[in-house]
Simulated scan of single mutants.
Amino acid sequence: MPLQLKLSAITLDCPDPMALAAFYQQATGLPLHPKSNADFAGLDCEDDVFIGFQRVDGYRAPQWPEQTVPQQLHMCFKVKQPLDQVEARLLELGAGRPEHQPHGDKARVLTDPVGHPFCIVKERG
């Protein structure tokens, strides 16, 4: 019988938890967790999933797609709006756009302000 594991949290290393939480809060509209602080911040997601951001001294940004500093985690977000529109807004918020884009017009790979890669994917239907 398989275990009944349910994802409850994802935590990203970063140099400034409140700043990275603010980026993802603006990007997703998710509420800031009330106990967020300078060392650990978080966003409350649907279905009791939590995205956390923990301070790491000497943080080194991932180098995607190279693995000189491994990406450690890669999140994907479904979007209803056109990818160009969502990408433009995320770039305004401080995201980066790596040159390497392996998914063609089906998805975009971006990086958050501290270098974690993530994708935006057009929601079907």
Rank of each mutant, 00 (worst) to 15 (best):
P2C: 04
P2E: 11
Q4V: 04
K6A: 13
K6I: 05
K6Q: 14
S8I: 02
A9P: 00
I10S: 03
T11S: 13
L12G: 06
D13N: 15
P17L: 08
A21L: 10
Y24R: 02
Y24N: 05
Y24C: 04
Q25I: 00
Q26G: 03
A27M: 10
A27W: 01
A27E: 08
T28P: 06
T28K: 06
L30R: 09
P31S: 01
L32K: 04
L32Q: 12
P34E: 06
K35I: 02
D39R: 12
D39K: 11
D39Q: 12
A41H: 01
G42M: 01
L43Q: 03
C45W: 15
C45Y: 11
D47F: 13
V49G: 07
G52T: 08
F53P: 06
R55K: 15
R55A: 14
G58V: 03
P62N: 02
Q63P: 00
Q63F: 00
W64N: 02
Q67V: 08
T68V: 12
V69C: 11
P70S: 03
Q71H: 14
Q71L: 05
Q72R: 15
L73N: 13
L73S: 09
L73T: 15
H74W: 04
C76I: 00
C76E: 14
C76T: 12
K78P: 00
K78L: 15
V79A: 08
Q81S: 14
P82C: 07
P82E: 09
D84R: 13
D84M: 03
Q85T: 15
Q85W: 03
Q85G: 00
V86H: 02
E87K: 13
A88S: 13
R89S: 07
E92D: 15
E92L: 06
E92G: 00
L93I: 06
G94W: 01
G94H: 06
A95T: 06
A95S: 11
G96Y: 04
Q101W: 01
Q101V: 05
P102G: 11
D105W: 04
D105K: 15
K106F: 13
A107G: 07
V109Q: 02
V109P: 03
V109F: 09
L110Q: 09
D112P: 10
D112E: 08
P113E: 08
P113Y: 07
G115V: 08
P117D: 05
C119H: 05
I120R: 00
K122W: 01
K122D: 04
E123D: 13
R124Y: 08
R124C: 10
R124I: 12
